[in-house]
Each structure stands twice: as structure tokens, then as C-alpha cells.
Amino acid sequence: MSYSNITHFINPSTFILMGIPGLEEAYVWISIPFCTIYSLTLLGNFAIVSIVKMDRSLHGPMYYFLCMLALTDIMLSTSILPKMLAIFWFNSREISFSACLAQMFFFKCSSLVESGIFMGMAFDRYVAIFHPLRHSTILTNQVVAKIGLAVVLRGGILTIPLPLMAGRWPYCKTNIILQPYCRNASLVNLACADTLASNYYGLFVLFCVMGLDVIFIAVSYIQILRAIFNLPTKEARHKTFGTCTSHLCAMSAFYIPDVFSSLMSRFGQIVPLHVHILVSNTCLLLPLMLNPVIYGATIKQIWGRVLQFFTHKGA
């Protein structure tokens, strides 16, 4: 049966993920960069976690937050990329209704958790610069663990209403999703029900949760930059700013592509669908691969451990 003929039903047991409509003939070639991104994301982030776990000198707040970020990147990429690659390689387009809701939950929850972790990292840098002598007493292991738990609970609790609402809607238009994975917006477009509550809730989460994270981070870094510029010597300013470089780069890699992808979705009518899907997914997944590179290149302890590993292996 052709996918295009599945148009009239109520509450489907499965959805059909179309991947990237119009580029089916190039799926094998398209899969190569996405498979590379996924492989490097797993390799890089597992390496970060392993290095921090093995090296006791890295058992501190900044590195604990970095491990949280690495695990979140692994969860976010794993929530969508295996199914995407299955579509490209095996034409495995079907996804059950419950699996679709689960994928939507883990995708959105991971994004909220990652935003919260960046906020925690900004707080860590603020304390390190303004209260350097009390940094270890303010951000103890217990405090860092509580921040991490709060961020995870916040992400999970705020995400749960989205799949719960989507699970109660009737679907009588089509079961075809013009994306390689399930997103809340995709199910909103397919539902034959009033989805206004879901739309408003999604906007609330975007602006009042992630927006507040961005504001907190911005205020923290305004204070940090003011403190840096007030330092007496250029060397001191450079050294202090260097401790924030990796965090600023990782945040930029997370938030800027997300804003760009949102703008693409708003003006999708003037952009071909396959271009929009390719660009938005690349913007989403590329930062997950870049985070280990950014931190590995800017934090000397991590880069030193990587070099030490390969040197001993080659010896």
C-alpha cells in the first residue's frame, strides 16, 4: 500500500516517518554525515565522562557539570538518530504511537535539561570568579548533585504534559509525518482536535523556562565580564576569561543554531522542505558533536588526558 493512500482513520497505531521527502534517492549519501555525527558524539562524550571519572584531579563542579552535559548530549542524539539512520538505510519508516510519544518526550526533555545545565555552569563560573576562596565550600558535591537532580526533574516534569496531551488527541487526517522523527509540532499538525492548550504550553516552556535560563546566563556573564575588565593586568584578564571560553562557545553552539532552526521553521514556506529538514537537523545535531571538541580543546586537563591516552597507547 502506498503511504500517500493512508489518509482516513482515527487514532492510528503507527505513524509513518517520511525522513527527508524528495531526497529518497540520496539517503545512503545523506546518512554518511549523520552517522559520522552520531559516532563522534558518542565517542567524544563517552570519552569526556571516562576521563573525568578516572582522573581524581578533575573531580570538581565544572567537570561534574561537563559530565552531565555529555550524558545529556548522548541521550538527545540517541533519542532521534538511530531511527533516522534506520529510515536512511533500511527504509524503516513505521513507528508505533507509543514509541513516537516516547521519542518526543526524550527529545524535548533532553533539550530542557541541557539548557538547565548551561545555567548551572554559568553559576559555577560566577562563583569561581566572585568567590574563588569559597568556591569549593559553596559548590560542594552535594550542591552540584542537587542542582543536577533539580535540572533533570524540571526537564521531565515540564515535558510530561506534551506527550500526555498528544496521546489524548484524535488523529483523523493522516499518519504521515514529514520529518525523520516525532516532534510535538508534527503531532499538532496531524491532530483533529483543539491543540491551542498545547501551543500555549509549548510557548510557555520556550519563553518562561529556556528564556529565563538565557536571561540568568546573560546576567551572570555581564557581571563576570565587568569583573574581568576591572582586573589590573592584561594577563589576569586573559587568564580569568580563559576559564569561561569553553562554556561560552558551547552555549553559542547550542542556542544560536536553535534560534536559527526556529526562524527556519517560521519561514518554511519560502524554503524547500528538504532544505529546511536538512538544515534544521544539522543545526540540532552538530553542537552535540562539537561540545567534547570545544571542552577538549579549551580545558588543558582534559586535552592533556586525551594526549596521554594516545601517547601511552602508541608507545
Rank of each mutant, 00 (worst) to 15 (best):
K173D: 01
L187I: 13
G202H: 05
P180S: 09
V144E: 00
N230L: 11
L178P: 08
V144K: 00
S198E: 13
K234Y: 14
A185N: 13
T243S: 04
H135L: 05
A218F: 10
Y171W: 09
I177Y: 00
I147C: 00
G156H: 02
S220L: 01
K234L: 12
R226S: 10
V219G: 03
M165H: 10
C172W: 12
I138C: 04
R134T: 00
L149C: 13
T195V: 07
P163N: 01
N230F: 11
L158F: 09
S198P: 06
L212Q: 09
G211W: 01
C244T: 10
N230C: 10
G242W: 11
L133S: 07
Q142P: 07
Q142T: 12
I160D: 05
T137I: 11
Q223T: 14
L196Y: 15
G242Q: 03
A128C: 01
C172V: 12
Q142G: 11
F207Q: 12
F207H: 02
W169G: 13
I129W: 04
C182I: 02
A197H: 04
N141R: 12
G242V: 06
F207L: 13
Q179D: 15
K146I: 14
V143F: 05
T245Y: 13
H238F: 14
R154C: 11
G156N: 03
G156T: 00
E235I: 05
V144W: 00
T137Q: 11
A150G: 14
N141C: 13
M165K: 14
L164C: 03
P161G: 06
Y181A: 12
E235T: 15
L231T: 06
G211S: 08
G211R: 03
L225M: 06
L231D: 13
A166N: 08
A236V: 08
A150V: 01
G148H: 06
T195E: 15
I217K: 08
A218I: 08
I222Q: 11
I157C: 10
S186T: 11
A193M: 04
P180T: 00
A185I: 01
R183Y: 09
